[in-house]
Structures are given as C-alpha cells and as structure tokens.
C-alpha cells in the first residue's frame, strides 16, 4: 500500500511562496489565476494489507511529524 499525504498551510497563515507564484502566473498572462497556496505532497510506502489500520497509522504520522497542526492542515489517501 501507499499513502499520499497532502500538507497545506491553514487559511490565514501567511504563504509568501504562494503569493510569489500567483504574481508570476499573472505576469505570464494567466489573469484567471486567483489565490495560490503552496503545500507539500508526501508519498509513504506502507507494509501490511489492512487499509483501515494503515489509515489510522498515517493519521498518527501526520499528527506527530508530517504536518505541524498549528499552521498546517493535512489530508491523505491510501492506495
């Protein structure tokens, strides 16, 4: 199995990288681009076959290390 984890800054947390990308898109002529938020994408290979148990373990990984829940949100998929 594999976990795909997405970590993003919470709303309201300053995201200067997202802002810089947004400005770059505008200067390239992509005027339709609205707010851009940058995040992280993390893949974790998992042993075992129990998806529910794996999901719970991945949630713990996010809480303890992969995300800093003071400033970041996370979500994940198990494949």
């Amino acid at each position: 199995m594999k976990a795909k984890v997405y970590v993003t800054l919470k709303n309201g947390v300053l995201d200067p990288q997202g802002k810089a990308v947004e400005h770059a898109l505008h200067s390239l002529g992509f005027s339709e681009a609205g707010e851009v938020r940058l995040g992280k994408f993390i893949e974790v290979q998992l042993s075992g076959t129990d998806r529910a148990a794996a999901a719970e373990r991945v949630r713990q990984m996010c809480e303890q290390l992969l995300a800093n829940t003071i400033i970041e949100n996370y979500r994940y998929e198990i494949e």
């Binding site: 800054l9 947390v13 300053l14 200067p16 810089a20 800093n68």
Partner: peptide, 17 residues
C-alpha cells in the same frame, strides 16, 4: 522548541522569502 511543543506557536518562511 516550538516544534516539540515546549513553546507555543510556529516559525514559518520569512515574509519576503
């Protein structure tokens, strides 16, 4: 110290990167 929860808050990328 903030990451380990010994102090509150978090330190992020500088405003001007």
């Amino acid at each position: 110290l903030t990451e380990s929860g010994l102090l509150p808050g978090a330190l992020c990328r500088n405003r001007d990167l």
